[in-house]
């Protein structure tokens, strides 16, 4: 099953719509609720990042019988030092992002904790792509 969603820069009102839709789909497919939570928490963090830090992007989800593969690709400033960005507590979030309850430098590390595979690639001035996979069993 293939799903695609568009995320728009600064559109906090709709942040989480893609994750919410994926949650409904996985529940319908009777995926273990604990696995569903791991998937949607990771995807939601990535979605918020694309809205908060970039100029929008795409969420691409592929669901197989035994796993889910998620790509969140944004057009944005990119991440100059991915290792630094992965450190808990490191953040470049603007005040309005913090006002929404995010921007504490916990997103990328929390995504990593919730998924089985994660790969972040980024080009400064072009954008960032986060690829994540979670096994259902």
């Amino acid at each position: 099953m293939h799903q695609e969603y568009t995320v728009i820069e600064g559109d906090f009102v709709n942040a989480g719509k893609a994750s919410s839709s994926v949650k409904k789909t996985l529940k319908q497919l009777n995926v273990n609720p604990q696995v569903v939570k791991r998937v949607v928490v990771a995807l939601y963090e990535a979605e918020v990042n694309a809205i908060a830090h970039a100029y929008g992007g795409k969420v691409i989800v592929d669901i197989d019988a035994d796993k889910i593969h998620m790509v969140v690709a944004d057009k944005g400033p990119g991440i100059p030092d991915i290792a630094l960005a992965m450190q808990e507590g490191y953040s470049t979030a603007r005040p309005e992002v913090r006002d929404m309850g995010f921007g504490a430098g916990m997103g990328l590390p929390n995504m990593q904790k919730n998924v089985d595979k994660m790969n972040v690639t980024s080009e400064v001035g072009v954008g960032t792509t986060v690829e994540m996979e979670v096994n259902f069993n």
Partner: peptide
């Protein structure tokens, strides 16, 4: 801090002063 809420493994009652749509989404 919603980032903190997203790290919880359990499902407690949430007490918060953050009142926006992201509170509900989180």
């Amino acid at each position: 801090l919603m980032s903190d809420v997203l790290t919880l493994k359990d499902t407690p009652v949430l007490v918060t002063g953050l009142c926006n749509v992201q509170t509900i989404r989180t």
